[in-house]
């Protein structure tokens, strides 16, 4: 004998269905976030290297690191991001001070070295991520017109813990923390950037 459906039962079932749908939708949203479809990243065209990345990350040693775009890098002998060009020069005319307080920017000669004339070599600059704390001093020093703008800050996913609300994003005064698709490389060209040599 079939049981007659009452209004109370109908409301009860409807509420249950609505509850399950809600739970499912929430789980879907969370699963999508966990799957890493979109991740946080630094937009180098908004970033002013204000030092908030170093101080605001929930990690004690920030997940934001400087990276060097070798396509843009000038391989300068006197890199303004490596040398503090305002410090007194040594006997060879090379500034005595360095920009990076952690000594995380490493300099090495590219190709055959001319030991007699440092001006006669090209130099490669690489970041030691174990030392870099994301302060952005090198990034700021490399910005045009002083440098070519090859250094930029990036969130490194091996370190990032993917907070629901990135603490750096909250603190960033330039709204430079954006959501990008995996793998989350920072954009290398501004959409309105004029292509020059």
């Amino acid at each position: 004998m079939s049981e007659k459906s009452t209004r109370r039962k109908f409301i009860d079932r409807s509420a249950r269905i609505a509850g399950f749908v809600g739970i499912g939708a929430t789980a879907g949203v969370l699963a999508r976030r966990v799957s890493g479809d979109h991740v946080y990243q630094v937009d180098p065209f908004k970033c002013t290297a204000c030092d908030k990345c170093r101080t605001s990350c929930v990690l004690s040693f920030s997940a934001v690191k400087a990276v060097n775009d070798f396509e843009k890098c000038g391989y300068c002998m006197l890199c303004p991001a490596y040398f503090d060009v305002t410090s007194f020069p040594d006997e060879k005319g090379i500034p005595s001070g360095k920009v990076c307080p952690q000594d995380a920017l490493k300099r090495r000669v590219v190709g055959k070295e001319d030991p007699d004339d440092p001006n006669n070599n090209y130099y490669e600059y690489v970041i030691d991520e174990e030392r870099c704390d994301g302060c952005g001093k090198c990034v700021k020093a490399c910005k045009p017109p002083a440098g070519n703008g090859s250094l930029r800050l990036e969130i490194r996913y091996a370190r990032c813990v993917e907070c629901n609300e990135c603490a750096i994003k909250v603190a960033c005064p330039d709204q430079a923390i954006i959501r990008v698709k995996t793998p989350g490389m920072a954009p290398t060209e501004s959409p309105d950037e004029t292509k020059v040599l």
């Binding site: 002998m77 001319d114 006669n120 070599n121 070519n148 040599l197």
Partner: peptide, 13 residues
Amino acid sequence: RNNTGNFMLPNRW
């Protein structure tokens, strides 16, 4: 000329 070849132009100009 010399080791680095030619003009040294970090700013590509």
